[in-house]
Design a protein around this nucleic acid. Structure first.
Lengths: 350, 350
DNA sequence: CCGATGTCGGATAACGTTCTCTCAGGTATC
DNA sequence: GATACCTGAGAGAACGTTATCCGACATCGG
């Protein structure tokens, strides 16, 4: 009735380190040493134990390791697994984790601080060795608390915390690249679609991009021509943006949507009104999501090299797990990708 | 020098069930009973213990639970976290897991059988209570082996295994919906873009969709007009498909791309040749990914209701963990979503 | 030839839970 | 008022691993 015999299929017992030790004729302590390649084992013994592990198809039981400290697993918290950018980050991360002993597990945290906090706690409860938080919505205080328990690397949010590592794109520069491009095309009156929900928190990309936009406009002496449209970064928010712009007395001839998803919403809304970019106005996004490159879309955008961001985050985390004390903050250089949604202003807009 | 004192931040020790028990003045055994709301605790004690848990911010240590069996966590293996359809599945899954005690962790398994196997093993090593495998590339034999160790629900692959549960869309029906639609529009010669890499394995959606296409064409007495284009389901594969179709003597007036991603690649390639759907030929995809609905894309496609698929998979898995013996196989009804890439054949194509 | 030093291997006590089993006390039954 | 039964509470042994300590032996310098 217990598991000694009865499971429907002849459930084969998993080999433990004790089995390995017995099979190799050594103590479990020694087998463990081989497993961790710790100090104090002869080559002969090492070989014998490894052969036994092979023979028994031994794989360490992670919870058991977790009870003694390390699980050799790092957790990644993302708002939603459906984000092309997050996927690039995961890829980069995986590429640095693969050669190490570490493994990656992802937790979908949702779109509000409370559920993200819960997801993070669950990751901690699993005794992960380190955490990668992608564009987290949690408060700085919570972040600080978490980083006291476990090494943390924040990706995408500009934090300057002394206890949390961070990797992000230089969104200030990214905004400048877009503005420079639009101005070079001859635009003067330029709009920016802001994400009002979170713009107040200065460390978030949303507000850094806005600040970068305003600063770049000022550098071109175009502060008076900067038009901020307040809505939300989502497909629906993009649609709203189009309507808001239509209602303007003096509409811009080019719009920087702040994020690809918003630009896509705008394109969709324009399309439904039989208009398009750049005919109605030039349009630029941010993120270089895969969809932006599809022919009929052809969105001008900013590439953040998610792969590189992920790889850097992985390296930082591994270093931190390895014992580095002080936090490190990386700022990666974005690049402008010009496609077909930006062009010189149309005559009627001059 | 050890952790009794020295960590840089005043690292607060995590409360264990022993602490809770002491705080409440009961035995750890009783505290554990309250935690699992097991039989044999008075209401008074239950209340006291729960108050202590609250006070100490107690959260069970999952690895420790794992050592005794359950971890209250289910694992989901996906090829890549960047897939809009997977995200819908995860959403549906989360919605049934939330009210339960279970939590979800996702492992990105990659695009080949070997690395997916590795990801699955890692999930097992973590002592997950159950596994959701999304469109796995692993062999039926491996699947059988895994399902002997842990409850498994396969999503997206049509399996009839007696030991593995499955949930998938009725791809055969989906193909028929597309063909019926195209024929109703007046098309007779219709192409299907096949995914040659995996088409041989009859349980995979790729081959079921192909079979469904051929059967539907036969039902319309159009077997002679069915054109199968052999390439790959990816953006690049879609581009190839366009070139292959161009090389045909007697090209179809409508093409069923088999998957949205392929259709998008085709649209991109057509666009670069200053052509488009449905002018060049009608085009339909499969999956109803979010991007398909964007105005300038407007792809006619088949909706599989990923949310419902995920929710069903979650329910099945929970039942299975709960002890259901025999496997269950669900087939969900897909729906056609008509947008702008399909239209009656253009005169010259008649 | 003796003590000091170094190397390799093993015994063993945790780690935080679960769960079976035992026990104490109360209540019902005759 | 003795016996059987129930109920609530606790003791304690796992689970699979790690890491500290300890001992045995070999080597080396004087």
């Amino acid at each position: 009735m217990t598991d000694t015999d009865g499971g429907r299929p002849a459930r084969t017992k998993r080999a433990t380190i004790v089995d390995v030790a017995r099979h190799a004729g050594v103590s479990t302590a020694s087998a463990s040493k081989v497993l961790r390649n710790a100090y104090g084992v002869s080559d002969a013994m090492k070989e014998r134990v490894q052969a036994s592990m092979e023979a028994l198809e031994y794989r360490p039981h992670r919870p058991a390791r977790g009870m003694r400290g390390r699980t050799y697993t790092v957790g990644m918290m993302v708002s939603d697994i459906d984000n092309p950018y997050f996927s690039l980050i995961a890829d980069g991360l995986a590429s640095v984790l693969r050669p190490s002993d570490y493994e990656l597990l992802v937790s979908p945290g949702g779109y509000d601080a409370a559920s993200q906090n819960q997801a993070i706690e669950a990751l901690i409860d699993h005794q992960m060795d380190g955490l990668i938080l992608v564009a987290p919505l949690v408060s700085p205080a919570d972040l600080e608390r978490v980083s006291g328990e476990i090494p943390v690397v924040v990706v995408g949010s500009h934090t300057a915390s002394p206890s949390v590592d961070s990797v992000s794109g230089d969104d200030q520069l990214g905004s400048r690249l877009v503005v420079d491009h639009l101005v070079a095309l001859g635009h003067r009156r330029i709009g920016f679609v802001a994400n009002h929900q979170v713009a107040a928190e200065s460390h978030r990309p949303e507000s850094v991009r806005l600040a970068g936009f305003l600063e770049a406009m000022a550098q071109h002496d175009l502060s008076d021509e900067a038009v901020v449209i307040d809505t939300q970064w989502s497909l629906e928010g993009g649609r709203d943006a189009v309507r808001l712009i239509d209602a303007l007395d003096n509409p811009p001839s080019a719009v920087f949507a702040g994020a690809d998803i918003t630009a896509l919403g705008m394109m969709s809304e324009l399309w439904e009104g039989s208009r398009s970019a750049p005919d109605a106005y030039s349009l630029a996004g941010y993120d270089n999501s895969r969809i932006a490159s599809i022919g009929p879309i052809g969105l001008t955008t900013v590439d953040q090299s998610g792969h590189e961001v992920g790889a850097s985050a992985g390296r930082l985390l591994l270093e931190r797990i390895g014992g580095r004390g002080e936090a490190s903050h990386l700022l990666l250089r974005p690049e402008l990708v010009v496609r077909t949604t930006t062009a010189p202003p149309t005559p009627r807009a001059l």
